[in-house]
């Protein structure tokens, strides 16, 4: 039987651009170039490697986001994923992690799956908690923050490098996996891949398709509220000296003045 892999990918504002909040204190996604979150490329890469090892596998990439988020799906398809699902609805504006995880869980269940793969965190929100919440909602084992992952005979194994120890993990499918940027460089789409991606199916679902009410998501359905967002004052210009042979000593003098020595 075919191994059904769903990879969750997010479309995010470019981190090297000038990222801002909008008036309603949500992330400004209009005035900044967006792209497939680099950390989700690692998830797509591992999905492709797992599919290569399996007899028969199908990779679906899934995103919840605005119209432009299709770009993220196209990139994943051009890397080699088989098909894509785009969940888009005007009522999704301002959805927090609880709402997003609800939408993803319903969409993953509707799509059908044996293995869900996500990135370790999104590069804009950087909460890194969605994978755990998704596992809780789906009721499947969470095998998260893996720097190495393997799927064999209905079992997923992997290595999780934690703060105090490196752990070897094991769970039965269906399961949810998240991978770190230590899991191995993601491939670049080939020209052939880019051409092929144009013909791959992209389904569009809205909240009605997923039987989710508008008030369960969006700013209204958000379980947290941002009251203010202030740009950090620019750091006051520091002292910069050129080393003419005494740079280390001058630095020591500064540190002593600040009572660090």
């Amino acid at each position: 039987m075919s191994l059904r892999i769903v990879v969750c990918v997010k479309y995010v504002p470019d981190a090297t651009g000038d990222r801002q909040f909008t008036e309603d204190l949500t992330v400004n996604r209009d005035d900044v170039d967006g792209l497939l979150s680099e950390l989700d490329e690692y998830a797509v890469e591992q999905a492709l490697q797992i599919a290569d090892e399996a007899d028969d596998a199908e990779i679906t990439v899934l995103t919840v986001g605005p119209e432009d988020a299709k770009d993220a799906l196209r990139k994943a398809l051009s890397m080699g994923a088989d098909k894509a699902i785009h969940v888009e609805d005007d009522d999704l504006h301002g959805t927090d992690v609880m709402g997003t995880s609800l939408v993803l869980a319903k969409a993953i269940e509707k799509a059908g799956y044996d293995l869900v793969i996500t990135g370790m965190a999104s590069t804009d929100g950087t909460m890194g908690v969605l994978p755990a919440i998704l596992a809780e909602r789906l009721g499947v084992p969470q095998v998260t923050l893996l720097s190495e992952v393997k799927v064999e005979d209905g079992t997923v194994t992997g290595r999780r490098d934690g703060d105090t120890a490196s752990e070897q993990l094991e769970a039965s499918l269906p399961a949810l996996v998240s991978v770190t940027d230590q899991s191995g460089e993601a491939r670049y789409p080939s020209f052939k891949g880019i051409m092929a991606a144009k013909k791959k199916p992209v389904e569009s679902w809205d909240l009605e398709d997923l039987e989710i009410e508008a008030d369960e998501v969006g700013l209204e359905g958000s379980w947290t509220a941002v009251d203010s967002a202030a740009q950090r004052p620019a750091r006051t210009a520091g002292t910069i000296v050129k080393d003419e042979g005494e740079g280390g000593k001058q630095l020591a003098e500064f540190l002593a003045g600040q009572k660090f020595i």
Partner: peptide, 27 residues
């Protein structure tokens, strides 16, 4: 250097050991 309170433009192989020695001497 946009972030620093104090910056040294120089070769770390010269500056860092000198800094370490100076800290040890002062301590």
């Amino acid at each position: 250097f946009d972030l620093v309170d104090y910056g040294v433009v120089g070769d770390l192989f010269a500056v860092v050991p000198q800094l370490t020695d100076e800290i040890k001497a002062r301590k």
